[in-house]
């Protein structure tokens, strides 16, 4: 099946029913990922590649529930960040708390929740968040790094996880996806000619 055709048949992003996120949180994720990987310029943006769907599904699954992480106390969320994550919260809980705290900061600083700000103000707010200038509290301090990382994951991972619709990010950068065999191409100083395939065997 042609992957773009399949992507087009999926429900439009604004009608997607989130599994984990509330409607307001989903609106935040739509708005924030749209600034992290915007549509303008060359290459697809986060919305075209359906990154919000990916993030929602990840938060609903093992990643969101910290299924693999060591979650025994005592917890010292104020420990030196170099010692790694020390929050008692799961990634899904960090999103819940982080979105609420960041939206509250946006309301206080810019008189509207993040999703309702104009793009320029949104960028200023994200800059503040990424530079640690939004006071979230130690238990939520990984909110930005998770959001950035998960956005990139949704952009670049195999489409089976809900993002990278149409393999558009792979087409854009020239990554051939799951082809997994390049013997003749090692050491050849010319661009690889074939487009990507995904794990389901579809071509972009």
């Amino acid at each position: 099946m042609h992957a773009r055709a399949q992507a087009a048949r999926e429900v439009p992003l604004d009608q997607y029913q989130p599994e984990y996120l509330t409607a307001a949180e989903y609106a935040f994720i739509m708005a924030a990922t749209d600034r992290i990987i915007p549509e303008d310029g060359e290459g697809p943006g986060a919305l075209e590649t359906r990154v919000p769907v990916f993030i929602d599904r990840q938060l609903a699954g093992d990643f969101g529930t910290a299924a693999d992480l060591y979650m025994e106390g005592p917890f010292t969320p104020t420990a030196d960040p170099f010692l790694g994550t020390q929050t008692p919260l799961t990634p899904a809980e960090i999103y819940r708390g982080g979105i609420a705290a960041f939206d509250a900061w946006c309301a206080q600083t810019h008189n509207a929740s993040f999703a309702d700000l104009d793009a320029e103000t949104q960028d200023a707010a994200i800059t503040a968040l990424s530079e640690g200038d939004v006071p979230l509290g130690p238990e939520l301090r990984e909110f930005w790094s998770l959001l950035l990382q998960n956005t990139r994951e949704g952009y670049f991972s195999d489409p089976q996880y809900g993002g990278n619709a149409g393999m558009a990010s792979w087409v854009y950068i020239g990554f051939p996806g799951a082809r997994g065999s390049f013997f003749e191409w090692v050491g050849r100083p010319e661009a690889y000619p074939l487009g990507p395939v995904n794990i389901a065997g579809e071509r972009a």
């Binding site: 600034r35 992290i36 990987i37 915007p38 303008d40 310029g41 060359e42 290459g43 943006g45 960028d123 994200i126 990424s130 950035l148 956005t151 854009y172 950068i173």
Partner: peptide
């Protein structure tokens, strides 16, 4: 590390 400049950079 994010935004239009990042997207341009990876391309």
């Amino acid at each position: 590390s994010w935004g239009a400049g990042w997207k341009q950079g990876i391309g």
